[in-house]
C-alpha cells in the first residue's frame, strides 16, 4: 500500500495527525491526507471534535484549580513553621 493510502484509510495515523494539528502546522501533504480521511470517516470526525473539547476542558480544569486558592489553602501551622524557618535562615 502506498503511504498516501495508508493515512487515508488508517484511523490510527489520522488520529495522530489530529493531535499534531492542534500543536503545530501540518505539512501540505499531511493536511491533504487528513482532510481526505476526515471526509470519509465519521468516527475520526467525532474523535477530532472530542479531542478539541478535551483540550478546552483540561485547560478550564487547570484554570479552575488555580483559582480555588481559598479552598486549597495550606494549614496555618504549616505556614507558621515555614515562615519561622525562613526567618531562621535570614538570621543566620
Amino acid at each position: 500500500m502506498n503511504p498516501l493510502k495508508k493515512v487515508i484509510y488508517n484511523c490510527k495515523q489520522a488520529t495522530l495527525l489530529i493531535e499534531k494539528r492542534q500543536i503545530r502546522k501540518l505539512s501540505f501533504r499531511e493536511s491533504i491526507e487528513l482532510r481526505i480521511h476526515l471526509a470519509g470517516c465519521s468516527m475520526c470526525k467525532l474523535y477530532n471534535k472530542q479531542s478539541q473539547i478535551i483540550n478546552q476542558m483540561v485547560l478550564q480544569l487547570f484554570h479552575d484549580t488555580e483559582l480555588q486558592v481559598s479552598t486549597l489553602s495550606l494549614d496555618e501551622n504549616f505556614k507558621k513553621e515555614l515562615q519561622d524557618r525562613i526567618e531562621g535562615e535570614l538570621n543566620k
Binding site: F62, V69, S73, I86, L90
Partner: peptide, 20 residues
C-alpha cells in the same frame, strides 16, 4: 520581602503545584 513570602505566596504556590 522574604518576611512576607509565606503570607503572600504560599497558598498560591501550593495550589499551583497541586493542580499539576
Amino acid at each position: 520581602d522574604p518576611h512576607h513570602w509565606v503570607k503572600a505566596h504560599a497558598d498560591y504556590l501550593y495550589s499551583y503545584t497541586l493542580s499539576r
